[in-house]
Structures are given as structure tokens and as C-alpha cells.
């Protein structure tokens, strides 16, 4: 069995440990930047929802500025964002390379996307539910927590799933700046040394990762939807 594996993927010989390490790095980058982006995304998402025209804390000027900022960061291609952010990354985490150095651009690249996902999730709350809560004397803060967040949990999970899947792609790209992880692994062996079998293994792991995330998301949504 193992012989068969190395017959098909000859270049994988002796890379097992490194592959494990790289997978670990990818997961680490994903979770740290994912969690930070989620925190930023949900705060900005709800802020956009409540300050928009007709929102419970309408503030059109504030909304316009925030909306433009989110759009700006969304429109910068990730690979350029990495280069652009080098000084910022150094200032925040002390280094612009390696797994740690990759987390800052990953957050900048993911948070705006996360924000839009959260905004879309929260926008699905019907105006009628908000009105019902208001008619029962719920404060704006109460509406945020008791209606917006509580009532849109399945939609939020869906946004989280989509964002984490897109993060898988971004972490692979972070490999280009020496961020480590599966992207780095595939570039170093598969691309630069023409070891296509290594690339295939990497792709298989990434596909498996995406599948697991998607299935988990679907499972939770199914459990929580009524």
C-alpha cells in the first residue's frame, strides 16, 4: 500500500513530516486570521446595518465613510495587499515574513470580505422583526444582540463557512511571501522543482479541507434552522 503510494507520488518520499508541518501552519494561519477577521467583520457588519438609511441608528455620513473603506480594502488584490502592508505588518508583529508575518495581510484581506458576508447575513432579518422588538420596548443595543445576532445565527454561520473557504485560498497565496503552509510547500516543490505529484497531494489536502469546512457549516446550519 505504502509502496503503491510512493510509486504514484515518487517525490513525496521523505516529505511526510514537512507536509504535516505545512498543513499545521495553514490551519494556524487560517484560524488566527479567521478569528480576528470574524471579530472585525461582525462588528463592522452590524455597524453598517444599523447605520444605513432606515437602520435603527441611522447615520448616513458615517455609513458612507465606512462603506467606502471596506470597498477600498476589498478591491486591492491580495498579492498586492501583502506587499503594500509590509511596513504595517512589521510594526504590528515585528516581522513581515513567515507564518506570523502572513497573518496581518490575511486579516486585512479577509476582514472586508467577512464584513460584507456578515452584512448580507444580518440584512436578512426582516424589518417586521425589528419593529416587533421595538414595539415591545427593546433598546437599539437589545435589538442588535437579541434580534440581529440571535435571529441570524444560521446566516452568520453560512457567511463564516464561505469566508473560511476563501481563507484557504488566501493562506495558500501567503506561501508566496514565505508564509509557510501548504501553498509554500506546493510552490517550492511542485512549481519550482516541477514535482507535479507534490502539487497534486497539496491540492487533495486543500480540497479535503474545504470539504470539511463546508460540511461542518452545512451541518450546523441544518441543526440551527427552524
Amino acid at each position: 500500500m505504502i509502496d503503491l503510494f510512493f510509486n504514484i507520488f515518487p517525490n513525496m518520499a521523505g516529505k511526510g513530516e514537512e507536509l504535516l508541518l505545512c498543513t499545521g501552519q495553514t490551519l494556524l494561519m487560517m484560524f488566527i486570521s479567521g478569528i480576528i477577521s470574524f471579530a472585525i467583520g461582525i462588528v463592522l457588519g452590524i455597524t453598517l446595518i444599523v447605520t444605513m438609511k432606515g437602520g435603527i441608528l441611522e447615520n448616513v455620513v458615517f455609513w458612507t465613510i465606512l462603506d467606502k473603506i471596506v470597498n477600498f480594502f476589498r478591491s486591492v488584490p491580495f498579492i498586492i495587499m501583502i506587499a503594500l502592508l509590509i511596513p504595517v505588518t512589521r510594526a504590528i508583529v515585528g516581522t513581515a515574513i513567515g507564518t506570523t508575518g502572513a497573518i496581518v495581510p490575511l486579516v486585512f484581506g479577509t476582514a472586508p470580505f467577512f464584513t460584507r458576508q456578515m452584512q448580507a447575513a444580518l440584512a436578512e432579518i426582516e424589518k417586521g422583526s425589528i419593529e416587533a422588538a421595538q414595539s415591545m420596548g427593546t433598546s437599539p443595543l437589545g435589538i442588535i444582540f437579541r434580534i440581529y445576532f440571535k435571529e441570524s445565527v444560521p446566516q452568520i454561520i453560512r457567511g463564516v463557512t464561505i469566508t473560511f473557504i476563501s481563507l484557504v485560498g488566501l493562506t495558500a497565496m501567503a506561501g508566496a511571501i514565505g508564509g509557510g503552509g501548504l501553498g509554500d510547500f506546493a510552490i517550492r516543490y511542485g512549481y519550482q522543482r516541477y514535482q507535479t505529484d507534490v502539487t497534486i497531494i497539496t491540492v487533495i489536502i486543500l480540497v479535503a479541507l474545504v470539504t470539511v469546512i463546508q460540511s461542518m457549516g452545512d451541518f450546523i446550519i441544518k441543526k440551527l434552522s427552524h
Binding site: 426582516e126 417586521g128 422583526s129 419593529e131 416587533a132 433598546s139 434580534i147 440571535k150 435571529e151 427552524h226
Partner: peptide
């Protein structure tokens, strides 16, 4: 908001909270 607790309201489309 305090006064509203003394005034209940029902709606055409019920406006129930579906996740509760």
C-alpha cells in the same frame, strides 16, 4: 421604550422570531 411596554402590538405578517 418604557411606555411601549404598556402598548402591545400585533402585525399583518405576525413578525414572530423564527429562531425562537
Amino acid at each position: 421604550r418604557q411606555k411601549r411596554k404598556n402598548i402591545g402590538m400585533i402585525f399583518q405578517h405576525f413578525n414572530l422570531f423564527n429562531s425562537r
